[in-house]
Design a binder for these strands. Structure first.
Lengths: 237, 237
DNA sequence: CGCAGTCTTGAATCTCCTCAAAAGGCGTGG
DNA sequence: CCACGCCTTTTGAGGAGATTCAAGACTGCG
């Protein structure tokens, strides 16, 4: 069962797996460490219950009555989460690794919050075309490109290969991409055999051929299947 | 081919199929009539190019390189659209019927714009779980409930049946729900045979059994298939 | 009346899912 | 240090839901 972390100025309660630190920089904002698997619950309906991810990875998800799960977004360092962005009662957040959070002042960060809101909407729209119109391979390719950008290690910049930690399990990826865990695994290993990516441990991924992956992710006619267009194709303006 | 309507204070250009009216009420906002099939292009990157739908129906959509299309949202009267909400260069809008638009002042309507932004995000998230995790029948049921709410005719409130105009074609519905036009047609006719809905003309739909439709839309265990849950089911708090 | 567009329906195909089993990693404890 | 159990991942075989292809029906319009 998931642990639950309560966050919010109104609640002094902190579960065992949360560390509370005080930071003198940036005006004494609190830092909280959340363990993987923990469901993050922002206290009440307070508008000011909003946090910034300092380090780590969090996913937002929704569930249907029978348990079918859809991960809405995967958030890395710098992303915001909380009631100032959207009613947190409508979906839930879970930490995918040890994650540092810091509470933010919604009056001071008004601008950042509006930017984050626009970013969320843009990402959600991009994800809609992924879920609705991309093939399994295209979905996985898109996810890899996205996660590589968000979680790339600043390690050796040798050649053009990027390595990143895949905080999501195959099951998480499946619930993000609208697939099954087996299909995700098959795609990843097919990419591996094709030389698009490389991995030894299933959670440390190296992008070997980013160009090819990007073409696949974009749904390039040559690589994917033929299109399902029910309306005339409209040329870009 | 789609016509293109230019909107925005910077552009005095109006295509033939657009009527320009002056309205004395609400401070001289302009009203524009857009014909169905018209792609609406908000001029430039101006932050103030934003409109409210007074009457009619507009859909927002994106396309992949090969023409695969995904409708992001269907907007009815009262909804906003424009650069104040999201960069309109990232997706396009098309009128699905004769539609009245009025330009709004983003300084005066600051509050409404932020509300609309949150509504867009919420709807996009709700649509994500539809695209990723619902079956074809559940998708179509969800769409019908949604459209009935947004486009219900205020006609005879007899019994509990709602009738509405389906401005979307089967192809539009398919591109909204991540299905094919044939699957949408099959679902609608299956609902018709099952007594959930009724229609004589394919674009005038009556919701006959709203409760059953809502259960289906919610992905009720008894009606749909068994769940695809890759993580433990988390009980609601 | 005939044409064009949308919608409906059927049959075959295919992608992805389901079910199943085996392999690999990791921590615990003997 | 290795055995054991637990969990995630991989891989295979078969099946189901949705798509594709195709033909016919309905509607509105010149």
């Amino acid at each position: 069962m998931f642990n639950e972390t309560l966050l919010g100025a109104s609640s002094p309660v902190l579960p065992i797996d949360c560390l509370k630190l005080n930071k003198e920089a940036s005006g004494g904002t609190r830092l909280r460490l959340v363990s993987p698997g923990t469901t993050i619950v922002l206290q009440g309906t307070r508008r000011d219950a909003t946090v910034r991810i300092v380090e780590g990875c969090i996913c937002l998800f929704q569930q249907l009555a029978d348990g079918r799960r859809q991960i809405l977004d995967v958030l890395g360092a710098g992303r915001l989460f909380g009631n100032a962005l959207a009613d947190t009662a409508r979906y839930r957040a879970a930490a995918l690794t040890f994650t540092h959070l810091e509470t933010i002042d919604i009056n001071v960060e008004r601008e950042s919050i509006e930017d984050e809101l626009r970013l969320m909407l843009h990402r959600s729209h991009a994800h809609a075309i992924l879920l609705g119109r991309k093939t399994a391979a295209e979905k996985v390719a898109t996810a890899l490109i996205d996660l590589a950008q968000q979680f790339a290690r600043i390690a050796s910049e040798q050649s053009d290969s990027t390595t990143f930690t895949l905080y999501l399990t195959r099951a998480d990826l499946a619930d993000w991409l609208g697939l099954t865990l087996e299909t995700v695994s098959r795609c990843l290993n097919s990419f591996k055999r094709g030389g698009l990516i490389a991995f030894k441990h299933p959670e440390i991924i190296t992008i070997a051929d980013e160009d090819a992956l990007r073409l696949l992710a974009a749904g390039q006619p040559s690589l994917g299947r033929r299109p399902t267009a029910y309306s005339q194709v409209i040329s870009q303006p």
